[in-house]
Amino acid sequence: MSVFAGLVEQLADVLQPLFHASAAAAAIVLFTALVRLLVHPLSRASARGQRARARLQPQVAELRKKHGKNPEKLQKALLELHAEEKVSPLSGCLPGLFQLPAFFLLYHLFSNTTIGGEGNELLTHTLFTAPLGDRWADALGDGGPFGTQGLVYLGLFAIVAAVATFNYRRTKRTMAANPLPVGDGEQQVPGLGAINRFMPLMSFFTLFTVAFVPLAAALYVVTSTTWSAVERAALYPVPERSS
């Protein structure tokens, strides 16, 4: 973790002439962008994989009709189909998995008062007036929601809400353009309808993450979420609604 702390400090030193007291916050944003840039090839591969899986849907539907009463045969047939077409059903998970270590490193880095037995000087850095190691509860206790620290969090909440609304609308349009097939003797998975109604709202849960993690980790989440929204808009264009 001390190596990671040194990297953040070095980035902050480089950015200090431009951002002054908020240089460490700017370093976290830049670090997040670098992580997402490194993961971008996986995101592009995931998009290609999703298009390939969409192309296989007619064959998958046929296999479900054929082996619907035999889950073992169905699973084996699906794995063989994906292997034959060189499509990984797990490719969509890789970009998110590769980002988790960076988030947890930031979380622990700004949650500990010491690093390598010495005081954690990163906790003295701020975003405007809000310490990077504090949480929203600390801001509420120091001036309330409209105090100088509270306004920093309100700005982050506004960004997250805007991104979540953008994602919500895109998800709704995507689901409207690709409705799940109903009927033709196919049995819908129990609870799937409720999950599909709930799924567009998931982006709004980022608001809770930003509220409860240290500000440094919240900056990572806000930056990464915004990057994801732009990236998905570019890699996953919303299709025209099927008639």
Rank of each mutant, 00 (worst) to 15 (best):
M1A: 10
V3F: 09
F4R: 10
G6Q: 12
V8L: 08
A12C: 06
V14H: 04
L18W: 12
H20P: 05
A26E: 11
A26H: 01
A27P: 01
R36P: 01
L37A: 15
L38N: 03
H40A: 15
S43G: 15
Q57K: 14
Q57F: 09
Q59T: 04
K66N: 07
N70L: 01
K76M: 11
L78G: 09
A83S: 13
E84W: 05
K86A: 02
L97H: 05
L100H: 08
F110M: 07
G117V: 03
G119W: 00
L123W: 10
T126I: 02
P131W: 11
L132V: 00
G133L: 02
D138W: 12
L140M: 13
D142L: 13
P145Y: 13
L156G: 10
A158P: 08
N167S: 13
N167E: 14
R169H: 08
T171S: 14
P179W: 04
L180F: 10
V182S: 11
G185C: 01
A194N: 13
P200H: 08
P200I: 02
M202V: 08
T206C: 08
T209S: 13
T209C: 06
L215P: 00
A217F: 00
A217C: 01
L219T: 01
V221F: 08
V222N: 08
T223K: 05
T223D: 09
E231F: 01
P239S: 06
S243H: 11
